[in-house]
């Protein structure tokens, strides 16, 4: 059941990548798939493990996504630090 759910999520994220990336760059599809898999494997289960069953699977994914978002914002801020002219 667990495996089934994770697989489904991987599929969904792959489709999302497909939808957004396919139009402009074909090569980005494998990258998106890869990232989706990484997310599924590493981060979400890491969150799940850290919280010790206190939260359900959906929340684990939500927290993992939030973590990724934070990482994204951090990268965005680094861009702002090193290339302030763009802002």
């Amino acid at each position: 059941m667990d495996i089934f759910l994770t697989q489904r999520f991987a599929k969904v994220s792959a489709e999302v990548c497909l939808a957004t990336r396919f139009a402009n760059a074909r090569v980005k599809l494998p990258l998106g798939l890869f990232l989706g898999l990484c997310f599924n494997l590493a981060i979400a289960s890491g969150v799940y493990a850290a919280t010790g069953q206190a939260i359900d699977r959906g929340q684990a994914y939500a927290i993992a996504l939030l973590g990724l978002l934070t990482l994204g914002l951090s990268i965005y801020l680094f861009v702002a630090i090193f290339q302030p002219e763009r802002f």
Binding site: S74, L77, F78, A80, I81, P84, F87
Partner: peptide, 11 residues
């Protein structure tokens, strides 16, 4: 330069 400083503080 100020934008950089603000971005750093934010970071």
């Amino acid at each position: 330069a100020l934008t950089v400083l603000l971005a750093v503080l934010t970071q």
